[in-house]
Computed example of a mutant assay.
Amino acid sequence: MKKIHIAWTALAVAAAVVGCASTPSGADLDKMAQDMVKSGFHTKGIANIERVTAIDETLKLCNEADVSGKPLDTATAKRIEEANLKTVKWPAGGKFLGDWKQGEAIAQSGRGLTWTDTAGGANGGNCYNCHQITKEEISFGTIGPSLYNYGKIRGVSDPSSAASKPIVEYTWGKIWNAKAYNACSNMPRAGHMGNLTEAQIQHVMALLLDPASPVNK
């Protein structure tokens, strides 16, 4: 998706240079971006071209908003969020948490989904690329907010309790499809796009919410 964003940005700059009188329409920019990607990328191994050409309405509208420099209007954003919330797959048997130790390994790993990987192989979550999570890990990005003490700050002393249910469900939904809560969120739709399995998300959930996790110490 970053490649599509770059293509859109490049086209926007080109349009600005040419001048307002000849600025392409949104539809023209969309076609130009798609043509640029198709000419510059090709399928190799499990990395197929559809990853960057299959743009759903959510990405299309958010890309257009990004290029125009104007955020989505409130009604459109709400409609997109509602549509994405409907795609969230809740865990089988209502089990939201797995093993925080496995969750930490997933959060640290950025491997997977490249042309050299095999189909069905385990992917990493690459969570540290955008967030601080544990105080022991000193290498992390700051694009997203710090998640250190995530559960502790939110009062989750027992993730299975009724009192914790709202934040537990929100956290699951946010990881599964972040655009269900923020229409044009930059956070990957980990579950929706199949980047992480249900079991992997359960492990990441434990990392964030288990009181025994170093995140909450």
Rank of each mutant, 00 (worst) to 15 (best):
T9L: 00
A10C: 05
A14M: 06
A15L: 00
A21H: 03
G26I: 01
G26H: 05
D28K: 14
K31S: 09
A33L: 00
D35R: 14
I46V: 14
A47K: 06
E57D: 13
T58F: 02
A65H: 08
D66V: 00
D66Q: 14
A77C: 05
R79M: 01
E81W: 01
E82P: 00
T87S: 15
A92Q: 15
G93Y: 10
D99L: 09
D99H: 07
K101W: 00
G103R: 11
S109D: 15
S109Q: 05
R111F: 02
R111Y: 02
G112F: 04
L113P: 00
W115L: 03
T116R: 12
G124V: 02
N126E: 08
Y128I: 12
T134D: 10
T134P: 04
K135E: 12
E136K: 11
I138T: 14
S139K: 14
I143Y: 09
G144I: 12
G144Y: 11
P145S: 13
L147T: 13
G151I: 10
K152Q: 13
G155E: 11
S160R: 01
A163E: 11
S164D: 06
K165W: 00
P166A: 10
E169W: 12
W172D: 01
G173P: 11
G173I: 08
I175W: 01
A178D: 07
N182I: 14
N182Q: 15
C184D: 08
C184M: 11
N186G: 09
N195M: 14
L196A: 06
T197A: 11
L207H: 09
L208P: 09
